[in-house]
Simulated assay, not measured.
Amino acid sequence: MDTLVFIASKLAAFLLRAETWETLLLAGALIALLRGRIRAARGLLISALVALLALGIFPLGDLLIAPLERTYPANPRISHVDGIIILGGAEDGVGTARHHQVQLNAAAERVTAGLALAHRFPDARILLSAGSGALRHLARESMPGAEVMAAAFRETGFPQARLLLESRSRNTTENARFSYNLAQPTPGETWLLVTSAFHMRRAMASFERAGWEAVVPYPVDYRADGFLEDTGWDLAGHLDTLDLAIKEWVGIWAYAASGR
């Protein structure tokens, strides 16, 4: 059942991407042209062009992702930490396996901030939680996200003995559940949760439902710089932020509805 939910969530995420709808508009225009429906084709092409210009110029994703990033404060004051949980999403398992070098992506702050916190709290246990959350990895050589992050830690001379690797999870629900089973936190322990700021609301809800009692959110990897500051032609950047925001809001609603 979990595998079916995983596959369904990935297909839904694909259908919710802004570029998917842009492609459907263009495909509809082509079909209309082939059928001789010039008026309909013209309307679809105009809609596609207007949408493309709006997405390229205006950071619409900032309007959706900024409220998520403001849910928890940055750099919370902390004095004692028993453990630090770092969620995957920053690693490139396929690239790492192919090149035999650690490959990170735009969410690299999850790893760099986690590493800084690990040095700041030398007695804390470090739990790296990530399997593979991409369907394409099922048919390609890849490394689990936790192993990629562990390799990044080891390259800085970090001791392997401090690391706990949870490498089976494919989504946030499994991150929370599998991490709890691995860490077995005791009452009174304080754990930091490190993930992207836009993802923290869903992550905290999942960890609380999984039984974690004292988890302190430590958001990193902020994406929204402000609507006016980001306005200007940046189609790839604006699409990326919009896709992230839509995926996250739908994920929050879906998790709440399913009790995950």
Rank of each mutant, 00 (worst) to 15 (best):
M1I: 06
F6A: 03
A8E: 09
L11K: 03
A12Q: 13
A13V: 08
R17C: 10
E19H: 11
W21E: 07
L24K: 09
G28K: 09
L30H: 07
R37Y: 09
A40H: 09
G43F: 11
L53K: 00
G56T: 03
P59M: 14
P59W: 11
D62L: 13
I65M: 00
A66R: 12
E69P: 02
T71E: 11
P73G: 03
A74H: 11
R77V: 10
H80R: 14
D82H: 05
I84M: 05
I84A: 01
I85V: 10
I85H: 00
A90F: 14
A90H: 13
D92P: 00
G95V: 05
A97M: 03
Q101H: 15
L117V: 05
R120H: 06
A124H: 08
L127P: 00
G131N: 08
G133M: 07
L135T: 01
R140F: 10
R140Q: 15
S142Q: 11
G145S: 05
G145A: 06
E147F: 12
M149L: 13
M149H: 02
A150K: 13
A151Q: 14
F153M: 01
F158Q: 01
A161R: 15
R162M: 03
L164R: 03
S167T: 04
S169P: 04
N171H: 07
T172W: 00
E174T: 05
N175Y: 06
A176R: 08
F178N: 08
N181S: 15
N181E: 15
G188L: 03
E189G: 03
L193E: 01
S196M: 13
S196D: 14
A197D: 02
A197E: 06
R202M: 08
A203H: 08
M204H: 03
A205F: 05
G211S: 10
Y218C: 02
Y222K: 07
R223D: 06
D230L: 12
G232P: 02
G237H: 07
H238P: 05
A245Y: 07
I246H: 09
K247N: 14
E248V: 10
W249Y: 08
W253R: 00
S258L: 15
G259E: 06
